[in-house]
Design a protein around this nucleic acid. Sequence first.
DNA 1: ATTAACGGTGCAACCGGTTGTACAACCATG
DNA 2: CATGGTTGTACAACCGGTTGCACCGTTAAT
Lengths: 338, 338
Amino acid sequence: MTQPARTAPTLAEVAEAAGVSRSTASRALNDSPRISEETKKRVRAAAKKVNFVPNARGRALAVGRTEIIAVLVTEPLSELFSDPTYSEFLSGITEELSESSYLPVILQASSSHERNRAREHFERRSFDAAIDVSPYKGSELLEVLRELGVPTVLCGQLEGHPYRDVFSTVYSDDEEGGRFAALAMKDRGRKDIVAVLGPQDNPAVIDRLRGYRAILGESLPDENVIYTGWSSGDGYQATRRLLAREIHADGVLCGSDRIATGVIAAFNEAGISVPKDVSVVGFDDHEVAARSVPALTTIRQPLREEGRMAAGIALDMINGAVPTTTVMHMQLVQRDSL
Amino acid sequence: MTQPARTAPTLAEVAEAAGVSRSTASRALNDSPRISEETKKRVRAAAKKVNFVPNARGRALAVGRTEIIAVLVTEPLSELFSDPTYSEFLSGITEELSESSYLPVILQASSSHERNRAREHFERRSFDAAIDVSPYKGSELLEVLRELGVPTVLCGQLEGHPYRDVFSTVYSDDEEGGRFAALAMKDRGRKDIVAVLGPQDNPAVIDRLRGYRAILGESLPDENVIYTGWSSGDGYQATRRLLAREIHADGVLCGSDRIATGVIAAFNEAGISVPKDVSVVGFDDHEVAARSVPALTTIRQPLREEGRMAAGIALDMINGAVPTTTVMHMQLVQRDSL
DNA sequence: ATTAACGGTGCAACCGGTTGTACAACCATG
DNA sequence: CATGGTTGTACAACCGGTTGCACCGTTAAT
């Protein structure tokens, strides 16, 4: 037989069972100091007896909170899921929130249609806060969030953006990461360095390069900086072209671990030994880094921690904390490619 | 300057601006037939003027709906995201819901701690429905959903489960997929078939094998059925063992596309040509299938459509539809390995 | 002319909680 | 015994919508 949908017990029923008023029942369950210990016990017992669980909707209306946090992503879901960067980050958010009663909702905001829907949800006050995973794009939505006064955490450095006073920011110090990578090269005694990076206009790329330069100076001349895509194939192609141009290099700084695997493959093919003849340093500490041969020395971006931090700050802001800017630190992960 | 968080306009303000009562305003905005066209116009104009957007919390309480659907997953987030199967499926759900005002929330339910939290959310009536992506595990939660009367869609065939009367089910017809694969082999004139499948106790494996058998009968003897893991390496190893046993085969049915790539690799290594000497058929239409050499003939499981369907049924059930069972059809994708 | 029918609107209750404030009962104090 | 201060509880309003029902004015039917 189909079990009919029981209507859940309400606070009124608990109150009646305990022989007190609704308000007393509410205060007792919320452990208000104004209620006597004895009454609290009675109310709790009654609540347990009728299997009372406070209704989220009623509570949300009364306290003005939905206990839901929106996570804004600009990538389509399929890409989002296949990029381990995001998945780490999202795991961090989920982890942190699972210690509270808050729930994360992934809200896509790539197409303008999606952004409109998102906007609507915010206007309806469906969420208590927002975490924007890639705030570079879709700034119209940021404008909406600002106007509505939604507590918002931006993940990633938005250079010179106009929201510093209203939004919190969490980002990893890409320049520092660049410095760490370059420093490792320098310590290893490498003098002729090439950088194979992602797209030239990418903020992370720009910052990392600045970090490289801060350490290496003229050891990394302009003509040795190559901008390409993020994939393994891009690294491979770039290295082939380098070899064809007979550029002498004893160190390659890569914009991502996937690029690095391609670079190494090209060197192997050309009979050049990594790390004997040339050192390679990656970026991200992607899962391929440890499995690569030789295992990749790389820069680890603390993505999961960044996610946790972002979620924590969002919760703080909901409770009235002022906007903050948090910088997470990169780490050099020593393996065999250097 | 920090823009103060405007308190959003409420229905009362709209009503006042339009010179009508709250109830009339509400009905006008909801296009009730009881309100005159003239009044509706006035109310709509007023709403637009004060920038009114109905508050989700108030509405949820009044209509008894949160407009949120929980998607239950048993995998940890990282695995979930890296498995393209899930990501396709989730995309389907998201797509379908984005055409309504409903929002999906991914709810993890692998650890018992997570399941407790999930249970709590359901008891609070935070969600209007649930979609269980892998209902094989965590049946305690299903029991809770049943008791609470939460409209629920199970994705995947739960043979002989006790919930058919309360829950809807959506699944792809694995047996049919097996038949399609076997039929293709038969049409190609292959007579000595080997099957390299996933784990023996997997429901999909069992059904697919049944499909193979329905077509091939004695052409697929028991000793030619090999159970292994889902990965490429498993397919490779299995094929090596086959070759060592000098089993003559002109067709291999694989339990997954990844298995198939391993099988092909092993054949190549042994100097056996695919598809000239032996035909190979995969399963899933995973993204590796098209890129494989030779491109893999395989069985496509309509995952995205399955997701859309599941979401659609969930919406229907919220509106009172009775539980249904829906079978999605597999498709043969003809490429070069057969 | 009286009444029935009907379209349009407003009052008030309701969804399920939380919370400001009034009040009753009790104690100790002058 | 009157007064004042606690302490514990209940009443009622409130959050922001939706909705049953009563009521009004108009028109059509008897």
